[in-house]
Every structure is written in structure tokens, then in C-alpha cells.
Amino acid sequence: MTTEHREAAPPAKGGAAPRPTPPASGTARPAPGPKEQRRAERRSRRYRWDLKYSPYAFISPFFLFFAAFGLFPLLYTGWSALHSASMLTPNEMEWVGFENFTRLWEDEFFWKALRNTFTIGIISTVPQLLMALGLAHLLNYRLRGSMFFRVAILTPYATSIAAATLVFAMLYGRDYGVINWALDLIGIDRVDWQAGTWSSQFAVSTIVIWRWTGYNTLIYLAAMQAVPNDLYESAALDGASRWKQFIHITLPSLRPTILFTVVVSTIGATQLFGEPLLFAGDPSGGTQNQYQTLGLYMYEMGWINRHLGRAAAIAWTMFLLLIIIGIIYWVVTRWVSRSSGEEE
């Protein structure tokens, strides 16, 4: 697929310094002889092709694999959203048009799940990213045992769901939970964590934060590695405090990565699934669905109630919702970067 690059020779030397764009043209060079000229032309043609087509070669593996394994499931889900179909017999579908979508308007459970997803998303994502940024900053210091800290903060991401379930059930149990035991000790009333809307959403959020803070920390840390040290050194010479360095050097340098984590966390929060499932033990998200997220609702609709078409419609609604959020982000960042005169 990229063979032409492998064979491609460097462009002829001696001529005008070739620039990336527009590609240097072979005709501008003096013509020493027909043979050499042909070779030079071939070289420069290769160079032009290289510049023109290598970007496509670089991105094509992604799109090829996506077309093979991502596109069909995506389109199929969209197609089944327009049908009444059972999870048990997905090959037999009955066309219903947009009914699976329109019924969501009157579906109180959908709106509840949407609200839950939004509130849990906010109370889990914001502190998570802020903490991750702070932790990454600290981990970027020269430290003894920095490897230990790096591995330690990423362990929640690797810890098995079974282990996490066990531990969080012990923490948040109503009668036998460690947290309620501690509350009792200091004279505060026990909390039925699962039963209340806020208490359960708070509990789910703590699981999300526990699980993903280290993940984001590591992403920030990698980006911080690319910030030149002498920026800090000269700032230090100018007498800037650590805090000022963080605000004026680290943060601006991390802007693309911060944008990345915000986008990814937004997507993750919208699709939130594993943590509330772990907390409840089933996809109901509580006896009154008080912490059922869109992801859980979709899962329940598909795998418990066995309505593939309706579940697919919820999936596509989530997809469209994310696209709307994406457009809002885009408009906002456009506006911000215009006003600050920068890109990205």
C-alpha cells in the first residue's frame, strides 16, 4: 500500500530548497543531460506524489479497517432502528419508519435517563479532569518512585470489574457499608446510597472518578513531557511561582490535549454504562431508575426487554446527541480561538 514511498528517492539536491507545499518543480532546475534529467524528473515526480498521496496512505489503514468492521455495525444499527425487531431474531425485521424515534418524545424513562446521564456526566467529568490535570502536574516533577505513582494511578483502569464491584458494594452498602459505618461513628445519619437520586448519582460518580482520573492523568502527563523545560527555567529566572508557571506555561501548552480529554470524556459520559451497571448489579439503574443512564437504558431495552429496534433508536439518538454537543463545542472553540487569534 505504501510501496511507492519505500522506493521513493530523496529529491535531487542542489536545486532550490524544496518546500513542503507547493512541491518543488523539476523544471526549475538546470538540465545536465537527458538521462539524468529523466532521473531527476522521476525523482521529483515521486517527491510530488509522496507529498500528495502519503497523507492518504497514512490515514487509509484506519478508514479501511473502519469500513470493514465499524461501518456495517453502525449502518445496521441505524437500519434496525427503523424496524420493529426482536433481539432474538435480528434477521426478521418489520419496517416501522421513525416510530422508534418519535416514541422517545413521550418516553418518560428516556427523559429520565437523559437527565441522569447529564447530571452524572457533570459531577463526574469536571472534578475528574481537574484532578487529573493537577496530578499530572505533580507527577511531572522530579520524583522518587515516580514509576510507582504512575502505575498506581492507572491501576483502577486495569482493575477488574468484579474486584471493583466487590469493593464498592462494601463501601456503599446501606446496612453493612464502610461509609455508613463511618457516618454512624461521627453521629451522622446513615444514607441509603442506592435509593436516593442524588446519593446514588454521587456514588456512581465517585466510581467514575476513581476509574478514569488516572487515565486522564497519564494523557496529560504525556503531553506535559513535550513542553520544553527551558520555558519553565526562564520563567523561574523571571521569578514566576510554580502556580504561575502552571497557568502560563503548562495550561496553554496542553490546550490540544485538554480539548481531546474534554471531547473523549463527553463521549464517555454520554455513553456511561459500566459504572452504574457495576453499582446496581443490573441495568435498571435503581428501583426507580434513579441512576439509569442512556447507555443502561439502551442496554436494558435491547438485552433485557429484547427490543432490538427500540434499543437501536436509543443508540442512534445518543449518537445524534453527541454530534449536537460536538457542534456546540466546535462553535465555542471557534469563537474562543478567533477571539484569542489562535488555531485549535
Partner: peptide
């Protein structure tokens, strides 16, 4: 396996071809 939907068969076939090629 009975094939019910030509469209599905085509789509699956396309995936299969691409996958095999890959």
C-alpha cells in the same frame, strides 16, 4: 441459514470481502 434480506446479505458480504482481503 435462510437469507431474508438481500440488503443485509450484500452488506455482510461486503464486510466479509473486506475482512478477507485484510
Amino acid at each position: 441459514r435462510p437469507r431474508r434480506r438481500a440488503a443485509r446479505a450484500v452488506a455482510v458480504g461486503l464486510t466479509a470481502t473486506l475482512a478477507t482481503a485484510l
